[in-house]
């Protein structure tokens, strides 16, 4: 408990991390209250109002179908958070489970799982996501599937490493000697110890998932129009880059701010929780 307090204070001292946290809180509020605060319907087409520059009525202007860009960005933040939370949850659960099982039981199972991880790591991550989409076709659900397919690898590796080192500790042997079963030991002793580095990983992962979702949207392979997704909005807006730069500037700015905030939080958490994890690279 004391160590947790110390960690929280350590985190609080990190100005960039606190700023990131505030930004994310604001963005989550915006996403939750999208119906209340968005000034227009994000998908309503009003052709008379198309391609208007930012003004009092349309703070971020309107797109080629006369839809209000600000409203689309607000609804886009909801979609972005939904998608990235789903992906991070799925991948964290799968990855941590695989990592703990693989590290705890070892042997042939560990060997097979880790060789499979090696093979998946041979792909640049977005390329593998592209294969999944190439096989299944574009769309939001396939985007989730595609990104999750690669996303769990980092969790598995980190969890396996932590499990291996914890497994050798004396308190595990004690637990076993008083007759605790494998499941109990994993749940009570291994899992809590594995959690810390994975929290850091999950935060940094949020940022990279948001980038990948947007990248797939931008390539026209993610969320399909008229869904207000930031990457998809950029893809639609790029046709009008010269005349209507606001269509491209605002969604991209939102992506950058969100990713930056998550990265700041992740860095802060890493420094506070586990200074040794300096070189974790999120795939």
């Amino acid at each position: 408990m004391i160590s947790l307090l110390r960690d929280v204070r350590e985190f609080g001292k990190n100005r960039a991390a606190m700023m990131g946290l505030i930004v994310i809180c604001i963005l989550i509020m915006i996403a939750l209250l999208a119906e209340v605060i968005s000034p227009y319907d994000p998908t309503k087409i009003i052709l008379e109002d198309k391609l208007q520059a930012p003004s009092i009525e349309h703070i971020m202007g309107t797109d080629h179908l006369g839809r209000d860009v600000l409203s689309r960005i607000i609804y886009g933040s909801r979609l972005t958070f939904q998608l990235s939370i789903i992906v991070v949850t799925i991948t964290a659960i799968v990855g941590i489970t695989v990592g703990i099982v693989s590290g705890y039981y070892g042997g042939i199972l560990d060997e097979i799982l880790m060789r499979f991880v090696d093979i998946l790591l041979a792909f640049p991550s977005i390329i593998l996501a592209l294969v999944v989409i190439g096989a299944l076709g574009p769309g939001i659900n396939n985007t989730i599937l595609a990104i999750s397919f690669v996303g769990w690898l980092s969790y598995a590796r980190v969890s396996r490493g932590s499990t291996l080192s914890i497994k050798e500790k004396e308190f595990i042997e004690c637990a076993r000697s008083i007759g605790s079963g494998d499941f109990y030991i994993i749940y009570k002793h291994v899992y809590p110890n594995v959690l810390y580095p994975n929290i850091v990983l999950a935060t940094l992962h949020m940022g990279s998932v948001i980038l990948t979702v947007a990248a797939l949207g931008f390539l026209g392979l993610g969320a399909q129009p008229p869904t207000p997704e930031w990457g998809t909005m950029l893809n639609e807006g790029k046709e009008f880059l010269r005349m209507c730069p606001w269509l491209s500037i605002f969604p991209g700015l939102m992506i950058m701010i969100t990713v930056l905030a998550f990265n700041f939080i992740g860095d802060g958490l890493r420094d506070a929780l586990d200074p040794r994890m300096k070189d974790v690279v999120v795939k």
């Binding site: 990248a215 790029k238 880059l241 010269r242 930056l260």
Partner: peptide, 25 residues
Amino acid sequence: STSAAIGVSIPNFWLALILILVFSL
């Protein structure tokens, strides 16, 4: 350090559009 953090977080497709906007258009 801050520029590095921004450099990591900036979506490359967006950076490309901004560069085109400024330097080409």
